[in-house]
């Protein structure tokens, strides 16, 4: 096998932010305004049932949604088991389960 050297034909990791921000983010924020209060502290992820086995980080998902990276956000949403541990621990009282539920609904309705 030939030695690999340099970069392959990868997609750039950088995110280009388009304004106005993603419509799904706006939709989620309007449906659950407490989502705006997230300070990305990561307490939700630390108690997350699904995150024990597979990467399911709500505090990152909020940011992914904001930048319009829907596919990556959906990957997290699919893994959520709606246990609600995150809501109990959130210092800003974000209704995380509701956001996850809405996203699951979005995935289901649009067969994503």
């Amino acid at each position: 096998m030939a030695n690999k050297f340099g970069f392959g034909a990868l997609q750039p990791r950088s995110i280009t932010v388009h304004l106005p921000l993603d419509s799904l983010y706006q939709k989620m924020v309007n449906a659950e305004p407490s989502l705006r209060l997230c300070i990305n502290c990561g307490m939700c992820s630390s108690v997350c049932t699904a995150n024990r086995f597979e990467e399911t980080q709500f505090h990152k998902m909020v940011i992914l949604l904001r930048y319009g990276l829907q596919e990556e956000a959906f990957t997290y949403a699919r893994r959520c088991v709606l246990c609600g541990n995150c809501i109990l621990t959130c210092p800003r009282n974000v209704n995380i389960r509701h956001v996850m539920f809405l996203l699951k609904k979005e995935i289901h309705e649009h067969s994503l």
Binding site: R13, S14, I15, T16, V17, L19, N40, K60, I63
Partner: peptide
Amino acid sequence: FKVEDTLLSRPLRIEL
């Protein structure tokens, strides 16, 4: 400009 979203560990490009 460029800015690293350090919570996401990904660089952003943004125009304001």
